[in-house]
Design a protein around this nucleic acid. Structure first.
Length: 280
DNA sequence: CACGAGACCTGTTCGC
DNA sequence: TGCGAACAGGTCTCGT
């Protein structure tokens, strides 16, 4: 489900509280519970709860699509992959009875004040790491696209000499961290670049335009509190502003030509055949 | 080393 | 209406 703007929205809710739940940051952990074994990569499930106990959730932040929970001693990293979502709620209902778990809850963080954080994940792709040094997981990531240190020249260097199509390269988290299928299609449409264009064929001007477009669509997404699709509704409304993604057969907002859908790198890919002509 | 295909999962929607 | 196929916001592993 989530790409950079959705993860950013979730992190902000963990810090300040969201529409449906209280903040999690600032609370003291009493333990944890693993409901689907493969969700927790490290440590062993048998050590998880004990190691969490007593640590304060001091800060929540984001790196690429990773949620980073800084504890007193350790760091808890959460990647929601395709269908993960976080929920913060009281363990006890207003009636004084235990609140039942949701159908696809995979892992719980239990705080000492009757609040819990649940990782709900129908497809079971989400992963959690409890580590001393987050860098052992995050070091392979490319630059933060919205960071001021990330420049067009930086992007150009990372694309230099690559013969591969631009779309799968933008999805590669070691090139840039945080783009997924939606925002890649949106950025390429805004930059007027065909998704199959070999990276090496892009001009300096096109790369500058792409750089600007990437930052632009991500900022737009954050301002809309992310996109909400299908049965998962988080309150974001960027789905109402899609220019290309998911709009096969609908008119391009720029020129009116019908948006086409092709497969690139095994991912559904949406583009305007007129605004984004094939490389020749 | 770069790249593409398959695997990991469940749920919803599409097409005949 | 029914039922199998296709599809879904991601990433890892393996083979070429």
């Amino acid at each position: 489900m989530p790409e950079l703007p959705e993860v950013e929205t979730i992190v902000r809710a963990l810090k300040a509280g969201g529409r449906e739940g209280p903040p999690a940051v600032g609370r003291v952990l009493a333990g944890g519970q693993v409901l689907w074994e493969r969700t927790l990569v490290t440590p062993l499930a048998s050590q998880f709860s004990q190691r969490l106990r007593g640590q304060t959730l001091a800060e929540a932040s984001r790196r690429g699509k990773f949620i980073q929970l800084s504890l007193t001693q350790d760091t808890l990293l959460i990647h929601l992959r395709m269908s993960g979502d976080l929920r913060v709620e009281p363990v006890t209902t207003d009636e004084g009875t235990p609140r039942p778990l949701a159908t696809h809850d995979r892992l719980l963080l239990l705080f000492d004040d009757d609040i819990r954080l649940a990782l709900n994940d129908p497809r079971k792709f989400g992963r959690v790491w409890l580590v001393t040094d987050p860098n052992e997981i995050l070091s392979a990531l490319g630059p933060e696209p919205l960071d001021s240190a990330f420049t067009a020249a930086d992007l150009a260097v990372r694309l230099k000499g690559r013969q591969r199509a631009i779309k799968p390269l933008l999805l590669d988290q070691t090139v840039v961290a945080g783009l997924g299928n939606i925002y890649t299609d949106e950025a390429l449409h805004l930059a007027k670049i065909h998704p199959l264009t070999p990276a090496a064929a892009l001009t300096v001007l096109e790369i500058e335009h792409l750089w600007l477009s990437i930052r632009s669509v991500l900022q737009e997404g954050i301002q809309s509190n992310g996109a909400s699709i299908d049965w998962v509704y988080r309150g974001g409304d960027f789905q109402n502003h899609f220019r290309a993604y998911g709009r096969k057969g609908q008119p391009c907002p720029v020129c009116g030509t019908l948006i086409e859908r092709i497969i690139v790198g095994q991912r559904g890919t949406h583009f305007c055949p007129v605004c984004q002509p094939p490389q020749r």
